[in-house]
């Protein structure tokens, strides 16, 4: 079950993305173009996704363990900090420029083009670089916060 559940989740996620319209970058840009050729469809994607997930997410936060593993992998860091806001802003600019967020971009390997490969290679390289740069400092600071809150 350890690998079956993530596999099934990946299948369902991909079908959902394709049906939702998010694998069409022009549609994504039109969703963001609120003062121009606005296409509000993607608000319905978010509403549908949260509508289904919110009950399970709330249940999971009260549950001790998931059904087929030992623990929940909740994020340990909960403060809104500059790194979060700047990171989200950088992501938003790239998302607006291309109409691709990570899921639809990776999924579009099924419908390849030169521009998509250029996007994916740059995204992968930046992902590796940013992981190396950012992973450690926050872990250290989160640990310091935990140590402070214990004293």
């Amino acid at each position: 079950m350890k690998n079956v559940i993530p596999f099934v989740a990946g299948v369902v996620f991909a079908i959902g993305l394709c049906l939702s319209g998010m694998t069409n970058p022009e549609k994504v840009q039109n969703f963001l173009d609120v003062t121009g050729s606005w296409d509000p469809s993607l608000a319905f994607v978010m509403a549908g996704a949260i509508g289904v997930h919110v009950g399970f997410a709330q249940w999971a936060q009260r549950a001790k363990t998931p059904y087929f593993s030992d623990s929940f992998a909740w994020p340990s860091f909960t403060r809104v900090d500059a790194r979060l806001v700047i990171g989200a802003a950088i992501f938003g600019i790239g998302w607006g420029l291309s109409g691709y967020c990570p899921g639809p971009a990776i999924l579009s390997i099924a419908h390849p083009s030169r521009a998509l490969f250029a996007f994916l290679l740059a995204m992968a390289a930046a992902t590796i670089l940013a992981r190396k740069v950012f992973e450690r400092p926050r872990d250290r600071r989160a640990n310091e916060d935990a140590a402070l809150s214990r004293t």
Binding site: A9, V12, F56, S69
Partner: peptide
Amino acid sequence: TTFTPLASAVGGALIGLSASILLVGSG
């Protein structure tokens, strides 16, 4: 692009279902 509220909501619901399967099943 055409406004597709139904297809988008159904696609979104599947994304929510996937997130729920992964969270409830694997954490």
